[in-house]
Design a protein around this nucleic acid. Structure first.
Length: 121
RNA sequence: CGAGUCGGCUGGGCGAUCGCGGGCAUGGCAACAUGAUCGAGGAACGUCCGGGCUCCAGAGGGCAGGGUGGUUGCUAACGGCAACCCGGGGUGACCCGCGGGACAGUGCCACAGAGAACAGACCGCCGGACGGCUUCGGCCGCUCGGUAAGGGUGAAACGGUGGUGUAAGAGACCACCAGCGUCGCGGGUGACCGGGACGGCUAGGUAAACCCCACCCGGAGCAAGGUCGAAAGGGUCUGCACCACCUAGGUGGCGCGACCUGCGCAGGCGUUUUCAGGGCUGCCCGCCCGAGCCUGCGGGUGGACCGCACGAGCCUGCCGGCGACGGCAGGCCCAGAUGGAUGAUCGCCCAUCGGGAUCGCCGUAAGGCACCCAGGGACAGAACCCGGCGUACAGGCCGACUCGUCCG
RNA sequence: GGCCCCGUCGUCUAGAGGCCCAGGACGCCGCCCUCUCAAGGCGGUAGCGCCGGUUCGAAUCCGGUCGGGGCUA
């Protein structure tokens, strides 16, 4: 489970990451990545369309455990928001982990490309 | 053994690895670290009722409005629960019932039907007058009356059965039965039950239609509310201190304190005078606040802490009560998040469902046990806290009782 | 978390105890008209979210569920 210091819990930061960050989806997940947030932080969005409270809680818990193994390898100061789509309900953690790796990897490379092009005009 | 009724309990277990939240202890200025410990439910759900708590002025009166509706109790309270009564269902255990009033008044009862609430003559039945026919027995037509026993309509047709009676009939009269009203008697706290006398012969349904009766209900809700901040200002004052001016006393200035309000633009009403406006749910009375208020458009902030977890609390035993429940004694401390902790992954076992194999065991057989394979954990997640109700739920376990059949 | 509101053909709606096996418009389907299409005409298709109750009778009244939507400092 993620330690409290890494959790993203402010409405403003959520909006900033979702609006300014790079978005990539794979399978039942969509990932927003925004570098330069000050400190590395991770947040989750699981809407009511995913299911009732029990299945929503299970999905967020699975995602939190998966991000716990991955947030240390992120570049420092990266803001990440993982959004669960309705298909995420009832998936095994291994499946969600695969989708998360692919979506996160693509979003990170895209964010890095964008930083390079803007840094070397 | 079969069929069934009622009530209660339970809601996968064990292990390994890695984690999260709370308060506590220790160390540390602190961030934090370490340690032991606690960490979802019977419905945490729906938000349908009731209460605690907080604020609205100290929570007022009348009307309006809303709710409840057999009785007696239980309870902090309830629209909940228990026991009983009445009505209905079941052979029975038992189940179901928004179960006050229709002589306080008003409304409605479509269609069908002659007639639907001060009932009603369509057919039929009976009698009279007139006309026609006649085989002189009557028959037909028309008209005036009588008649609610019969037909037919309807959810419902103004007691039922039998008799007397009559031109035909009718509670017109009689007997029994059902039902209504009044007055006694006995039993019960009471709803009501049992039985008696008298009366009139009969009264439709609907109040989850208005309404009447009895009882209950002020409004909002923890995003309540409080402290601090963003954030700076404006106003009032019976307050306090100081200074100045003038005649005892007052006026002005400045600071502190308390309270109210809180940005910009536009429009409207008001600021004199007991008057705009606001609050006490709507109206009236009564009362309070009062120099600002209302409407529209646009913008800012949308943070921290308290409230916040010892409570109508849980467990055990005894006592009272048919029971709901209450009393006493002893013991226990039992989630507290805020983008929201209470878990993730893996292995084994158990309950259970599907399929296979018909080689093992029991059995005449259906089938059961064992074996193999894959699937696989029901409904569902605290958010201020309790008491209920309602709804969802794979299965498993226990107890009491009823009916039927067989054996003794 | 709390407080409210609404459910009628595929869509938007009327209906407020019987006149309604629910009316209208846009749709959809078929036929007529036309050389063909459109327009026009005729006919049809379909609905009271669900389950109980009150009543002789319910889209309407009452209760319970299910679904959708709104507000909050």
């Amino acid at each position: 489970m993620l330690p409290a210091t890494v959790r993203l819990r402010r409405r403003v930061v959520f909006d900033a990451v979702v609006r300014r960050g790079q978005r990539c989806g794979h399978g039942p997940l969509a990932v927003h990545v925004s570098p330069g947030m000050g400190s590395t932080s991770v947040g989750f969005i699981v809407s009511r369309a995913v299911g009732n409270a029990v299945t929503r809680n299970r999905v967020t818990r699975q995602l939190r455990h998966l991000m716990r193994d991955r947030y240390r390898s992120l570049p420092p100061g990266t803001g990440v928001v993982v959004r669960a789509l309705p298909a995420a309900a009832g998936r095994r953690s291994a499946d969600l982990g695969g989708s998360l790796d692919r979506a996160l990897g693509r979003a990170l490379t895209r964010a890095a490309d964008r930083a390079e092009t803007s840094a070397t005009p």
